[in-house]
Amino acid sequence: MNINYLASLIAVIVLFLLAYVGVEAAGLRYFFGVLLPYLAVIIFIVGFVKKIVGWAKTPVPFPIPTTCGQQETLSWIKPAKIDNPTTGFGVFVRMLLEILFFRSLFRNTKMELREGDKLSYEWEKWLWLFALAFHYSFLTVLLRHLRFFLEPVPGCVKFLESMDGFLQIGLPGIMISGILLLAALLFLLLRRIFIPQIRYISLASDYFPLFLIMGIAITGILMRYFIRVDIAGIKELTIGLVTFHPIIPDGIGGLFYVHLFFVSVFIAYFPFSKLMHAGGIFMSPTRNLTTNTRATRHINPWNYDVKVHTYEEYEDEFREKMIGAGLPVEKES
């Protein structure tokens, strides 16, 4: 057994028990329902902002964009305006494609050694596809939850929900995003467990967020389809939180508190983990810089003078030899 995913799984199970027992046996409803969520949100915002500010305080001393296409040089050669962007607009589009569609990951190939000695590279779309599915379904689920935090519920949230549930299967109607989220998570987890290379590079901190988000999704799905909870009561609680009039309504089961606890842990964990790739992508110097590096001078704020071997020192050492070879010199002797 692999200690990394076992440890993560156990951690999530322990978290589950903590919240469930804490609420059902110890009655710590206010703690899990009000205090922890507030604390988590504060940690999330402060942690996130601090991390970004920490990155931003470090300068980008050199322009090091990765050029993934033709540079802009001679007027008759067509430049790759997005993959080798010389303008701010080009960078904007490059970043947009990167952030919204994971463009670099889209390029992914899979290497194989065939017939003994022939290397082949095949387009590998699954990671890209499931990564995209995961992020977008997670976003949809998140936005749908705005119905618990806004009163009155805006039309766009209702619309999103009706789109998400357009299949109208079952009652309550199945939400595509929830199923997709779980499926994508499962894919991302299984590839970590079963592809030897990926298992080899995976840390416990790679499995933990997967299990945790799975925990969030599963408890959510359970509440929606299987173990009924009082939605109106839950909204009372959540609205209480966002209006700073916290209240613990009666009759909300432990499962909800587990769900809420998982979410709290997730957002509090966020700024201290690899999940910060969400902020990092915006600031990655190989992607967000223009490539007109020979046309515009980039300033390095800590540029300092260095010791160099000057021409004078050079000539002093080799003057005679230079004169002998007929090379021009500054001083004749």
């Binding site: 966002v242 009039h245 309504p249």
Partner: peptide
């Protein structure tokens, strides 16, 4: 991130 907080403007919203 804080959209729900200022959307509801810290009003007391009574449950139905």
């Amino acid at each position: 991130i804080t959209f729900p907080f200022w959307f509801n403007q810290a009003k007391v919203i009574a449950p139905p």
